[in-house]
Design a binder for these strands. Structure first.
Length: 467
RNA sequence: GUGAGUGUAGCUCAGGGGUAGAGCCCCGGAUUGUGGAUCCGGCCGUCGCGGGUUCGAAUCCCGUCACUCACCCCA
């Protein structure tokens, strides 16, 4: 019998759970400080809710659930495990629009499932930490989302993260201005993202493999590369503005017939948005964190405005990302509702924090403050009573579960002390013959092997003072 | 979906045609109210599974499954 978890799934042992909860706790705490409210949605959605929202590749990766009864034979599916947290949010907003506040701000930390092939840092079940603001087109939303994300990473102990910022409309204007047909946009956007991982030459080659002409490909990639933020660069805000101005000038003076009027207008809108976001970020904790990066594209097709990603120097992928998607909710309700959100990659944050040893020591610490040792063979009542007293005083108490075969059996206490120490429990409480007669409890500090006799009535207070 | 690598004790791994190995873990002892060291002893295996070659296969060949890594795509 194979005892491992199913492919791409993971068991979380106590230490893992403590670490995950620590990070999730910080995230939830920060989001709440920004006025976001918690939301939870079912693991299972109707298949039709999910289908067609993530593109062709995304549809293929949806975990489907067979229809009950005859579906088991026919292979017909009508339900599916949720693929992300954004589409369920869009569904919820479309369903409860009237009951939700005009500006609905929600955060959601739940697992999602993808029938992907597992790989390093990639699983079939993983947590997403999403925060989204619904109902406003103001760039204040973007600025606050970036500030919240900056707060999260700062509080977790990251000092070297960078928020890459770009705008879908800017990219689209560029593509339109270059007379690139809409059917090719996905390839060119994907090539832009590639620049983060591979060099200019390879990115051009890859575009050509997809059937695009060499000049167009090279010109696009080279152009983007000029404004590429590179991992490790920590450019101050001024550089961003400079880059943007440079782009603006270039775009407006590129009169070789490339930019068309509509593309130019779209680009202007995007530039106004980006400048606004930057100006607002100056007054938040995202100050100094934001860099402008033309090559940021993001895979999901539903983005319509600003897009962003959080990067650290020692991880190839992103620690999270998001953007504005003003049309997604309309796919459910028929009425477009503006929305903008960001998703933090919990698993990747954990991977980097583990590699860098960033978890506070208290997290790997013990399951209990004190362990009650059993010395007499038939007085478990005594030890349970002591444990109960200590617990009532607010201590975390473990009772060694097995009494020795006889009173003070040879090696029995040794074994119990060893067990307590191996569990990282700092103190052991012993009531043996001498203690019973004197009405005391012997408190042993496992690390120093020092014992101290305390009157039974003082033990709880004594231990509370020590931990 | 494509490609590569690895499957041997509970865990980490050695052995690459001739009796199945080491370390760690666990259990017991040296040490009867005091444990992290050391030493001694013990437990532990269809060598992933199926077939083939061979006198003989953990070892070579074919197939298959699982895991890992990379591509695609993504968090």
């Amino acid at each position: 019998m194979n005892t491992g978890p199913a492919r791409g799934m993971r068991d979380f042992l106590p230490e893992d759970v403590r670490r995950r909860r620590h990070v999730i706790g910080v995230i939830a705490d920060v989001y709440q400080q920004y006025g976001f409210e918690p939301l939870e949605t079912p693991s299972v959605e109707n298949l039709e809710t999910l289908q067609g929202k993530y593109g062709e590749e995304g549809d293929r990766l949806i975990f489907k659930i067979l229809k009950r009864g005859e579906g088991a034979e026919t292979g017909q599916a009508d339900l599916a495990l949720r693929y992300d947290l954004t589409v369920p949010l869009a569904r919820v907003v479309a369903e409860y629009r009237a009951r939700l506040p005009k500006f609905f701000k929600r955060y959601q930390v739940q697992p999602v499932w993808r029938a992907d092939r597992p790989q390093k840092g990639r699983f079939r079940e993983f947590y997403q930490c999403d925060v989204d603001a619904i109902g406003s087109r103001s760039m204040v939303v973007e600025a606050e989302l970036l500030a919240a994300a900056a707060d999260v990473f700062t509080r977790l102990g990251f000092s070297d993260f960078v928020i890459r910022l770009n705008h879908r409309k800017l990219l689209e204007a560029l593509l339109a201005g270059r007379q690139i047909s809409k059917s090719s946009w996905a390839d060119f956007l994907s090539a832009a993202d590639d620049l983060d991982k591979i060099d200019v030459k390879d990115a051009v080659a890859r575009l050509m493999e997809k059937g695009h002409d060499a000049d167009g490909a090279a010109s696009w990639i080279n152009w983007l590369s000029q404004f590429k933020w590179r991992r490790g660069d920590a450019r101050p805000l001024a550089t961003f503005n400079e880059g943007l101005d440079k782009f603006e000038t270039l775009f407006n003076t590129a009169d070789q017939g490339h930019p068309q009027l509509t593309a130019r207008e779209a680009a202007q809108t995007a530039i106004v948005d980006l400048k606004k976001i930057l100006a607002l970020c100056e007054f938040t904790s995202a100050r100094g964190r934001v860099v402008f990066d033309f090559s940021l594209a993001r895979g999901l097709s539903y983005y319509t405005g600003a897009i962003f990603e959080i990067a650290v120097p020692d991880l190839a992928g992103s620690m999270g990302g998001g953007g504005r998607y003003d049309n997604l909710i309309g796919m459910f309700s028929g009425e477009d509702v503006p929305a903008c959100g960001i998703s933090l990659g919990l698993e990747r944050i954990l991977v980097v924090m583990a590699e860098r040893n960033m978890f506070p020591p208290s997290l790997v610490a013990s399951s209990a403050d004190v362990m009650v040792v059993q010395w007499f063979a038939h007085r478990t009542d005594l030890y349970l009573a002591l444990a109960t007293e200590l617990r009532a005083a607010g201590l975390r108490v473990e009772l060694y579960p097995e009494p020795p075969a006889e009173d003070n059996q040879k090696g029995a206490t040794v074994k119990q002390f060893q067990y307590a120490q191996s569990r990282g429990i700092p103190y052991a409480a012993v009531i043996g013959q001498a203690e019973l007669e004197a009405g005391t409890v012997s408190i042993r500090t496992l690390a120093t092997r020092q014992d101290e006799q305390r009157p039974r009535a003082d033990v709880a207070a004594y231990l509370k003072a020590k931990i």
